[in-house]
């Protein structure tokens, strides 16, 4: 069965696109998610994904086109505006970050739904499928989507490659970065914009709700295996890509199984295994160590 699937991944048009799309999302989400998780901004991805919706609708209304690039640009712009508003609310008011995230997430999403129903009620036959961006439908990915995702995703990855040193410093010690003269604010915007790109790529594949998992899951899993950022980035990208491909393959073999949820369940499985069994940090080793320590102490106590 397996070689048959592998052949299909290479030669079957639909499966190839779905697998490639999910893998791309996994890599980009995993790499950018690493920074999001390290900076404790994991849920920003969730808020961003929701905030992208009004942009998708507006882009469609203005350009009257469903070309992936047009919708992605719209999504990116409104996701980006949402992020800036969140940062401003945290900076300028007394509200905590999670409240700011919640406010922007729900209000932008509400606006998106208003626009979506407006488009639908204007009896525009061409609009069908816009809501695919909400829940993701990997099965609808065509070659054009995959190519656009690859092009946009490589921009995000290139940014990480070029600014690796800066992003690393920003993630671990922003005060130090500022004190030695790094343009912290600019770098912050740059890094956040890259995360926006990762989210936008994922919308059509896994949808708004599950996007958070694609950013957080692979990175949280990778964190358990290493203390080095470079290794963590590579592992996280690998975990993301592997979940993407495996999820896509399972969804095609089983009938009527949606790809997005399967990909996310694969990510979750990797997270659970990593937290339990990763060398050094695994929870299981921890409790075994504790048990043997306790036994050793008890034995010592019994000796006179």
């Amino acid at each position: 069965m397996l070689p048959g699937i592998l052949r299909d991944v290479i030669f079957d048009y639909t499966l190839r696109n779905v697998a490639l799309g999910s893998a791309l999302l996994g890599i980009v989400g995993g790499v950018l998610g690493t920074f999001a998780v390290l900076r404790r901004q994991g849920l920003l991805g969730d808020a961003l994904a929701h905030a992208a919706l009004p942009g998708i609708c507006l882009a469609y209304m203005l350009a009257n086109s469903k070309a992936p690039l047009v919708l992605m640009i719209g999504a990116a712009i409104s996701g980006w505006i949402g992020t800036l508003l969140i940062l401003r609310i945290v900076e300028d008011t007394r509200l905590s970050e999670d409240t700011a995230l919640g406010v922007i997430l729900t209000v932008f999403f509400g606006l998106g739904i208003v626009l979506l129903t407006y488009i639908q009620h204007s009896n525009d036959a061409n609009q069908a499928g816009l809501d695919k961006y909400l829940f993701g439908q990997a099965a609808t990915l065509v070659q054009e989507h995959v190519i656009t995702m690859a092009a946009v995703g490589s921009i995000a990855l290139a940014l990480v490659a070029v600014f690796f040193k800066e992003f690393k410093l920003l993630s671990f010690d922003p005060e130090f970065a500022a004190s030695i003269g790094f343009p912290v604010r600019g770098l912050n915007v740059l890094l956040t914009s890259s995360i926006v790109i990762a989210v936008v790529i994922g919308l059509q594949t896994v949808g708004v709700v599950l996007m958070a998992a694609m950013l957080i899951g692979p990175a949280a899993a990778a964190r358990q295996w290493t203390n080095r950022l470079g290794v963590m980035l590579a592992l996280s990208g690998f975990f993301g890509a592997a979940s993407g491909v495996v999820g896509a393959m399972i969804s095609v073999t089983g009938s009527r199984l949606p790809t997005g949820p399967l990909v996310v369940l694969c990510v979750t499985a990797i997270v659970i295994v990593s937290i339990l069994f990763a060398p050094e940090r695994g929870v299981v080793w921890d409790s075994l160590r504790r048990r043997s320590n306790r036994r050793a102490i008890l034995e010592q106590g019994q000796q006179p």
Partner: peptide, 25 residues
């Protein structure tokens, strides 16, 4: 092993995915 925001971001998509999966399967 994970911070609070990551913990939330791991659990709820997993639950939602499980729900969607269960509905369609």
């Amino acid at each position: 092993r994970v911070k609070s925001d990551a913990a939330i971001g791991i659990v709820f998509p997993a639950m939602f995915a499980l729900g969607t999966f269960a509905v369609s399967k």
